[in-house]
């Protein structure tokens, strides 16, 4: 197999790399990362993001951005089907992308899950997207008070927090893969507040 590896397989053409480079649009990309989301990497990325946005005078957008980013990244860390062992711990892999536009930022995350995980996420997201601020607040409280499911490291509150901080409804897309797997992606829009 290795011997059959041709040169042009390895040396991407200019247009291939460019299409990857511009895949988020040619907006200002603040951050693009694909790979294993270990806690160390997550901290570096989150801090980098916060420093990039620190010209925001009231820090409001920065705080929201930081929070949404951590929740998205920790979801990948915990729930991605693409998992590797890093320093003795099993960690999920995925992709995160943050772009800046004139009046807002977009945060996009993607990872592989089992089909049924997508379906239950879809149901959650649809429910959250229909709620107003007051409903989200009391739903969050209810979840905080609820007993945890055995073995679940998350609180079931991450998506609610994202929904409360985001400026538009949460976008969730699915691309079906083989073996009952799906590639899912979250789309979050955050308006700049001044």
């Amino acid at each position: 197999m290795v011997n059959n590896h041709k040169e042009h397989d390895f040396y991407m053409s200019d247009s291939d790399l460019f299409s990857l480079y511009s895949s988020g649009g040619l907006e200002k990309t603040i951050l693009m990362f694909k790979g294993l989301l270990t806690q160390d990497i997550l901290v570096v990325l989150a801090e980098m993001l916060a420093n990039n946005l620190s010209n925001d005078p009231r820090q409001k957008t920065t705080k929201k951005m930081f929070s949404i980013f951590v929740e998205l990244a920790q979801n990948i860390h915990r729930y991605s089907e693409e998992r590797f062992i890093s320093e003795g711990k099993e960690i999920g892999a995925g992709i995160v992308l943050v772009n800046e536009f004139k009046d807002y930022y977009t945060l996009i995350s993607g990872n592989i899950v089992q089909n049924n995980v997508y379906l239950s996420l879809k149901e959650k997201v649809d429910t959250l997207n229909k709620m107003d601020d007051t409903e989200l607040k009391s739903y969050r409280k209810e979840k905080l008070k609820q007993k945890r499911k055995e073995g679940d490291k998350g609180a079931g509150v991450g998506l609610i927090d994202i929904a409360r901080k985001a400026s538009k409804p949460i976008g969730l897309k699915e691309k079906r893969l083989e073996n009952d797997l799906s590639f899912i992606s979250f789309y979050i829009l955050l308006e700049k507040e001044f």
Binding site: F66, E71, A155, V157
Partner: peptide
């Protein structure tokens, strides 16, 4: 300064 959702719980 910042707490994530699972820390809130």
């Amino acid at each position: 300064y910042y707490l994530n959702s699972s820390s809130s719980k």
